[in-house]
Design a protein around this nucleic acid. Structure first.
Length: 468
RNA sequence: GCUCCCUUCGUCUAGUGGCCUAGGACGCUGGCCUCUCACGCCGGUAACAGGGGUUCGAAUCCCCUAGGGAGCGCCA
């Protein structure tokens, strides 16, 4: 039997980190078993669903590389099918029309709560034999006795008593189907074998299983994965920083890092922390998913992101970095090959945004030394040493890392300075900042002409009285 | 309130009755390396929610308590 899993988001917002993990686990499980991964858009809530959200979800999945084999299927395109099953249900006595008004329901609910009872529908229309009428909803006749056993792949065996359940609405007054009904029809029609979803759905599961049984269908296997918490252990929300996958992308996170972080959040394979796509696909098992909720740890994500920035091929990183530089207004034709810059920066950036910031100095037409501390560093360096270096730079036989290093070293020793004492003012002169890759690499990337020019103007600026 | 779920370092986790004086990772921290920033390397910090059982032996099995979460919608 081919394993078939699905991701079924409702398009009422962006793809958030929790949904992404659910999708990832479903995707991994399907891929691991050479199964099929299906995307289904649950847009039956006409009020809240938007096409923008659909796009955002699709974009998020594409960014993460979670490709689907079938779909996206839209529930709004399947209303005829739902109506069909609905009438079957009614004809077979599995469902009935209910004429209780929302106000009445609300009143009874309040009374039940006041009596400290579990609020649920009292079933007064169950055997009333109502026919269809404009405002009537349709309710499923849930069994009154017995139990429903869910052998959940992550929660273990969970037993629900039918007498705890009520008769849920499966079609609204306007005839549109509700979630618990559409999900059952779809999972059956689409041949879903394993339902992997958030554990907020665990309590819905027995009702869905009862409907599946009424339909004479075999319920799929279930795996309810716990939710993701914010750093503080509270439910994840915007105030925890990034929650949307696209926001992480915009902040310079790599999909490799995000995926690796997410797969380890609630799942482990011994002590291994770094997983390639292929490794996690081979090693992942839904049964090994931790049953407890996990708090997100942004620092660890950052560490992983840095790891991938560091270890992925420079050309690859350069390709992804380019848009970030463009966004900063950098002109990539005005400087060294981006790959070379990336190579110099790979061990120095935690995100692409950070790297773009560091790379930008290699493409700026001119530098400004605006920090007084930096100005002071140049001013406190013996002018002759700087002048000699500018000369050495101008006349070096070749503009290579080695030649630059030798020039700095010679100038330093000649003037009684350590390498570092001279390197720092040069760094400031040529980049305008106190931080950059090693000075020889930095200068090599910048090019001879620019280095000499900037060195000279820095000298002129720091020692205005003396002529250059 | 009722039903269901959950509980190992600050965080993610390993652990499935003896290999646990509880391992790894992030973080934090001491040191080394060093031209800045980083990378890297070596070391340190810190946990089985509490209480009862079962057992020769429990982080691991059972029960209770506490704490956290979810559901109880004509939302999904």
């Amino acid at each position: 039997m081919t394993i078939r899993t699905r991701f079924a988001p409702s398009p009422t917002g962006y793809l958030h980190i929790g949904g992404a993990r659910t999708a990832l686990y479903s995707w991994l499980f399907a891929r691991k078993h050479q199964g099929r991964f299906i995307l289904r858009i649950e847009d039956t809530d006409l009020e809240r669903s938007t096409p923008e959200s659909v796009d955002a979800i699709l974009e998020g999945m594409a960014f993460l590389g979670l490709d689907y084999d079938e779909g996206p299927f839209y529930q709004t395109a399947r209303f005829d099918r739902y109506r069909e099953v609905l009438s079957e249900f009614i004809a077979q006595g599995h469902a009935y029309y209910c004429t209780c008004t929302k106000a009445e329901l609300e009143e009874r609910r309040a009374a039940q709560i006041a009596r400290k009872e579990k609020p649920r529908y009292d079933r007064r229309c169950r055997d009333a034999g109502h026919g269809p009428s404009p405002q009537a909803v349709v309710r499923f006749k849930n069994p009154l006795e017995g139990t429903v056993v869910v052998d959940d792949a992550v929660k273990g065996r969970v037993v629900f008593r039918n007498d705890e359940l009520d008769d849920l609405v499966i079609a609204r007054g306007d005839g549109t189907p509700t979630y618990n009904f559409t999900v059952v029809v779809d999972d059956m029609d689409m041949g879903i074998t394993h339902v992997i979803r958030g554990d907020d759905h665990l309590n819905n599961t027995p009702r869905q299983i009862n409907m599946l049984r009424a339909l004479d269908a075999t319920p799929p296997a279930y795996a309810h994965i716990p939710m993701i918490l914010g750093e503080d252990g509270a439910r994840l929300s915007k105030r925890h920083g990034a929650v949307s996958v696209m926001q992480y992308r915009d902040e310079g996170y790599l999909p490799e890092a995000l995926i690796n972080y997410l797969v380890r959040l609630g799942w482990a394979h011994g002590d291994q922390e770094i997983f390639t796509r292929a490794e996690m696909t081979a090693l992942f098992d839904i049964k090994d998913v931790h049953a407890a909720a996990a708090a997100i740890n942004p620092k660890k994500l950052l560490w992983l992101n840095q790891h991938y920035i560091k270890t992925l091929p420079a050309a690859d990183i350069a390709k992804r970095l380019a848009p970030f530089l463009a966004a900063r207004g950098a002109d990539l034709t005005a400087g060294p090959a981006l790959v070379e810059v990336v190579t110099a920066l790979q061990e120095r950036a935690k995100t692409l945004v950070e790297m773009a910031e560091q790379a930008h100095i290699f493409y700026k037409p001119e530098t400004v030394i605006d920090d007084p501390k930096n100005q002071a560093i140049i001013a406190s360096t013996p002018r002759p040493a700087l002048a000699a270096l500018a000369e050495a730079f101008a006349t070096a036989p070749a503009w290579t890392r080695e030649a630059i290093h030798a020039a700095v070293e010679t100038a330093a020793t000649t003037h009684g300075l350590t390498f570092g004492k001279l390197a720092q003012p040069i760094r400031i002169a040529v980049t305008g900042t106190a931080v950059s890759p090693p000075i020889d690499i930095t200068c090599a990337l910048l090019g001879r002409e620019r280095c000499v020019l900037r060195l000279k103007s820095a000298i002129a600026l720091a020692f205005p009285e003396t002529r250059p």
